[in-house]
Design a protein around this nucleic acid. Structure first.
Lengths: 152, 152
DNA sequence: CCGTTGCGTTAGTGGCACTAACGATGTAGG
DNA sequence: CCTACATCGTTAGTGCCACTAACGCAACGG
């Protein structure tokens, strides 16, 4: 597929345009992950929120928003859904009555463990064509690009 | 008034999850490219369509849809916009009256050349933190992932 | 002929990132 | 203390984009 001739001078053919490849791959990866999570009655935000809670303990919604990148307006629904299913509890913070403290329940922790496995296997499906060192390299590249882009 | 809470600073990467990094990077890359193109009164679909036309000559809309991945329902608007600006011409195909033949105009070719440069510089901004060999490697990785994902 | 398939087009759906505004509550400065 | 402002959770809404459905028309195959 890759024509060694088309290095730099002539405009990149559509097929090899990094930005395009990036969004194509991201789109399909997103679908893969979303469908996988849907089969476990979850969405990617559920996972993000639960992981954030596990990593740094109970937090206010605004705090969670900052950690996960989910907008605090959208977080409301996420917490609602997690609470409905009994995975988190939302309680007013006595120390600051503007806040809600969100806490993972034991059931939530169990659910999260299940999702961890699911996500890991989905990552594996996603990255199937790459060797382990290549996967690490890709992650490194993406990490650097993200760093760079979010500082603009 | 923009609430400073809503400005997403670097969402503390809760994890170096490839699928997550992928969509974060793709999102920002997309924004970068879209904003750049908007400054030239263009959208990414315009560019994709024009490139496809240059690469393989006049084509029907359905053909273009297949080549660019743009849904033929959305392609209608893209061709409309390009035609309004005088970059392409849409004419009924005498050989098959169901079809429209879309052809680039000279003005369209000039416009495309301008966009080529713009896109190239945007790719450069995007990939700034990577060395040239790293960029090629990233493109290779993404290409392989895309191949793999689109065969599922 | 007639059923199927491909064409361009219109309309609509659902999800997602993102913004705006509000009432309640906290904090800081004079 | 009072006033001004910031932050909290929440509701509502915007605009974009991938994607679907259905249409009338034309071509093709049996």
């Amino acid at each position: 597929m890759t024509d060694p001739m088309d290095a730099q001078e002539t405009p990149a053919p559509l097929r090899a345009l990094p930005s395009r490849l990036l969004s194509l791959v991201a789109m399909q990866a997103d679908r893969l992950v979303s469908e996988g999570l849907a089969r476990a009655d979850a969405r990617k935000w559920h996972y993000a929120a639960l992981v954030a809670l596990r990593e740094s303990g109970p937090a206010s919604q605004a705090e969670l928003s900052r950690r996960t990148g989910i907008y605090r307006s959208d977080l409301v629904a996420v917490i609602n859904e997690l609470a409905e299913r009994g995975f988190v509890e939302r309680a007013p913070d006595p120390a600051d009555r503007r806040r809600n403290v969100v806490t993972v329940t034991e059931q939530g922790r169990r659910h999260l463990r299940r999702l961890d496995k699911l996500i890991a296997s989905l990552q594996d499906d996603l990255l199937a064509p790459l060797t382990q060192p290549e996967r690490e390299q890709l992650t490194d590249f993406l990490g650097r690009l993200f760093e760079h882009l979010s500082r603009s």
